[in-house]
Design a binder for these strands. Structure first.
Lengths: 146, 146
DNA sequence: TTGTATTTGCAATTGGGTTGCAATAGCAAC
DNA sequence: GTTGCTATTGCAACCCAATTGCAAATACAA
């Protein structure tokens, strides 16, 4: 697929080696419409050549370091990763929707602004906006809700 | 102290037993001006009679269940607990400041509003606003920053 | 093709959080 | 004050996401 070329270039631009693990993980993150846990990713890449657990962790952290992905801890205190908006620089004020039923994280486009006033001596570097609730898949009118 | 009376009443109101662990933990949370980790609390209560690790976890979860405290996973995927605003019902839209140096969580008074637009089928129950940066204690002009 | 620094894979470890179960202790009733 | 019952506690063992150390494999520049 053409996206692979795209990704290779992105990696190479950073003076980094283009490895299958990096390509596959980033491609997956980019095609995912929501934040994926380490486990999700491991499962998704299990076809054919599985990726080692540790390698996966390292690739993910590397992607975050490079500003190609970002990382949030969900309610179950599990990290979820998503691709950063194409550019590369770590994305600034971003809004997330966290489903309290399935724990999945979605990125909301429509992002708000302005940090609230901070106490003296505090400095802000990033503002995160998290909306909790039920995602479309879990928002069905059923009583089977945990 | 008078606060203890206050807390005893709060617990009793819930048809729950008033135990030293519950009293001490809730009193501590109420006097703390920021979210505390399990470890913070364990350390803080270590004078005289220490509280068992497991008991502490259970007391904390119970407090959350009762709406007397709330629980957030911080960036290091560690839970932090804070007392709920006196009433008891879990507090609504709240703003947090998270120090990326020391990992501590502070509650910001000046709370913002309005959730962003959500995709169809999504329902929001709570909005969290998280500001990241350096807290007053860590914001000193030094290179000794991890 | 070769040399080498970067990545990978494996095995072992860390650490926050949880579970099972017997011992303890609130507290309501006598 | 004593008794009895149930809610809590404390201990020990366990779970699992994430991390670390190190040797083997490999991307890629020369």
């Amino acid at each position: 697929m053409k996206d692979t070329q795209d990704i290779s270039r992105l990696l190479r631009e950073r003076g980094a080696r283009v490895t299958p693990a990096r390509l596959r993980v980033l491609a997956l993150l980019r095609s995912a419409e929501r934040g994926l846990s380490h486990h999700d990713i491991e499962k998704a890449l299990d076809d054919g050549t599985p990726v080692d657990r540790v390698t996966l962790y390292r690739v993910l952290d590397w992607l975050v370091e490079q500003g190609l992905a970002h990382k949030v801890a969900d309610e179950q205190r599990v990290f979820r990763f998503s691709a950063a908006s194409t550019g590369g620089e770590p994305h600034q004020a971003h809004a997330h929707f966290v489903c309290d039923d399935c724990g999945k994280v979605f990125c909301l486009e429509d992002t708000p602004r302005a940090a609230p006033r901070l106490p003296a001596g505090f400095a802000s570097t990033q503002v995160e906006f998290e909306v909790h609730g039920h995602c479309a898949a879990c928002n069905v009118p059923v009583e089977a809700r945990r």
